[in-house]
Nucleic acid binder design. Structure first.
Lengths: 354, 354
DNA sequence: TTGAAAGCGCTAACAC
DNA sequence: GTGTTAGCGCTTTCAA
């Protein structure tokens, strides 16, 4: 019996209910079901019909297929994000902020770790574009970063976090380096320090250069001399390069009573070198860091540092992205969040004229 | 002029080259282009033709549209992951391991932070399923976790990390709690401690219960007594609940010389309470943690703890997922990675009979 | 207000 | 070995 294609083709078992199932259950055409289901078009449907469709959808457990919708509308409500190193405690709060804000508007965040590898960054952003992401948040930008130009040229919405770029019309959210480093230098100056060393980070990063410039500027404002032999730059913003740079600086023999590290991990590198050489913190040398990463209050001694509102940076970045998505040609802008000083036990007045 | 639909319809500017553009450029049918482009089907195409298609694809800068492909094949090469709190330093290395392994096979990881919120976990997993993820990695599982049963019932591939579940046929990768806690207890015992306190964590989590059971077991094996007044349980695996639980334990007045904390953050809570009460670590009380989170070596004093290979847990979890994806009905299994003891400065022999 | 028809970009079954 | 055809599930003209 049966066999004729007219009297009901074999019901192939589908895993999930599709729009057509909802339509069938509500006795309307799929397009009507679509209109009823989408808040934006619901008004164009008879209220009673819409209610029937909604009920049918609930009944069959309808979940729209994002892939099909995305294919049709070329909008996926997905934002990509590139992070150089997720185990850097800087990033998790930023990611959280971005995700919390984005999810409010129904967006999903797709994360990728790039291990500071430029090729990987290019490949992953390509893959993300193939997946039709609506925008890309980059925590990986260097001061000069061709990838951003390519993305911009390809029409991808881009927002930078924790980094800025020179002469590039791209949205960015960072902490204000000048205020932050200014706070650090002035804190030390107000404690009475006059010979202040500086351990900087990667100059390829806007944070590396910006913080150094801010250090020089505030030293000047405080009427303190800038001694080049008290400045060293680490290759990366990590403990070991920080220790190496600081050891080299110490070996020069120039006297100083305090050191500003361009981030907390560099400060930790300074800790290691000072301990090794039998110098006490803060009695012999005061140390101040930057970022106030998690557990900075647990270090030995607890680290005086500059707190950056990382979570809020994430929220703001998400907001910029949402705005760019809503208004195609909103002007790009850079937002600098204001840091604050957190005084702990690694800074103190210099020893009375030893 | 023109206007006739026959002599070339208006070239609507498409942003990216599609398969049909490649096909046109290579003078073949789109399906042939598809076959040539996919390694799996390339063999069915004349080698010269395939080469021509590949060249054409390169020439027009062809990037396949994953959405369309996913819609057609119902496979997206995307794996979702739920994390309760990304700022918990436990998770970033796991995420990294998963992503590194997954990306080797062309998969993308979609991360979501759930803030320990069960409703959010349900909602997000729904949304991910709507996005047609191929599998889901959960770092959020409790010992009893209905969501897993729902997912399993819906045919979603699930792998648990850092957690296991009772009586549930689901793949899982964790550290071996019995070996780990055993290492901790035996380390203290070998130092001469006989009165050992225990600060446990959330018993809803498999890690909470498992570590406690392991503590009891190893105490017994070492021939040491279990004194219930030396055991306290924190509501969560964080500093403050750890401090509260440990303070309460201290208030009971039972004498002890060492404490095993069920994770490093609980240990940090113990640090705070001991410092507050003027007790020295390790002279008055030895403290041992669990996990060896980042910066555990920077704490004051550096924390003796149990190192869990978190990155490797991530890699293994990704591998299980890949296997499950390749072989639909591979049996689920639990993998327990072996931890190691890391001795630092928070443990020492007990003070000679005070 | 609703239905019909087309098509987003791709792949797979089936012809030839 | 290659072309034809159909359709994944959805939205969006266009007509009625």
């Amino acid at each position: 019996m049966s066999g004729a294609s007219t009297d009901g083709p074999l019901e192939r078992p589908r895993v999930r209910a599709a729009l057509r199932d909802v339509a069938a259950a509500a006795n309307v055409h799929p397009s009507t079901a679509s209109r009823a289901l989408n808040p934006g078009t619901r008004g164009r449907v008879n209220a009673a019909t819409a209610a029937r469709v909604l009920e049918a959808a609930r009944h069959v457990g309808y979940q729209p297929n994002s892939l099909a919708r995305g294919l049709r509308t070329s909008k996926t409500f997905t934002i990509g994000m590139l992070i150089p190193d997720l185990t850097n405690p800087l990033f998790p709060p930023i990611v959280k902020g971005i995700e919390d804000r984005l999810s409010q508007d129904g967006y999903t965040l797709v994360l990728a770790n790039t291990n500071y590898d430029l090729e990987r960054e290019t490949a992953i952003s390509q893959a993300m574009i193939a997946r039709q992401i609506d925008g890309l948040v980059l925590a990986t930008a260097r001061r000069s970063y061709p990838l951003v130009h390519e993305l911009l040229a390809a029409g991808v919405k881009v927002v930078l976090v924790n980094r800025t770029m020179e002469n590039t019309p791209v949205a960015a959210v960072t902490g204000d380096e000048h205020i932050g480093i200014g706070l650090a230098v002035s804190h030390l100056a107000s404690l009475g320090h006059r010979e202040i060393a500086y351990v900087g980070g990667d100059a390829d990063a806007s944070t590396g250069l910006g913080r150094y410039e801010a250090f020089v500027a505030r030293l000047h404002e405080e009427g303190l001399p800038l001694d080049p032999s008290l400045v060293a730059h680490a290759a990366h913003f990590h403990e070991e390069p920080g220790a190496a740079a600081f050891a080299e600086l110490l070996d020069r023999g120039t006297r100083f009573t305090a050191v500003v590290a361009a981030n907390d991990r560099l400060a930790l590198g300074c800790y290691d070198v000072l301990r090794e050489r039998g110098l006490r913190i803060p009695e012999d040398v005061s140390v101040i860091g930057y970022n106030d990463i998690q557990f900075a209050d647990k270090f030995s001694p607890p680290l005086t540092t500059i707190r950056i509102p990382h979570y809020q940076i994430g929220v703001k970045a998400a907001q910029l992205m949402l705005e760019a998505l809503a208004d195609g040609d909103a002007p790009s802008l850079t937002i600098r969040m204001t840091p604050t000083l957190v005084v702990r036990a690694s800074t103190a007045p210099p020893a009375p004229c030893a």
